[in-house]
């Protein structure tokens, strides 16, 4: 039920990281956690904002050497 889902958007260009994140979120239940990995720079800021727009909780955004990991809890 609260099992964590992981997706990778490594190498994807705009707007695919955001699209794939939202597609995954739509398939999840409230309270479930999604971990998104990627390397598209703009998406690192745009994905958290888009998730907040829909009332989902951005748990953390971690960046290291151009790669980022965003953790979201579905609201």
């Amino acid at each position: 039920m609260t099992e964590e889902i992981r997706i990778s958007t490594m190498g994807m260009n705009c707007p695919k990281p955001l699209i794939e994140t939202r597609k995954a979120m739509r398939r999840m239940a409230k309270g479930q956690v999604l971990v998104v990995e990627g390397d598209h720079a703009v998406s690192k800021d745009e994905i958290p904002q888009a998730m907040r727009d829909t009332g989902d909780e951005v748990v953390s955004v971690v960046e290291k050497g151009g790669r980022w990991t965003i953790t979201i809890r579905k609201g």
């Binding site: 705009c14 707007p15 955001l18 939202r22 904002q49 888009a50 829909t54």
Partner: peptide
């Protein structure tokens, strides 16, 4: 379609 996808992804 990029704008449409982005907007839909933003709810």
């Amino acid at each position: 379609f990029i704008v449409a996808n982005g907007a839909a992804a933003k709810g």
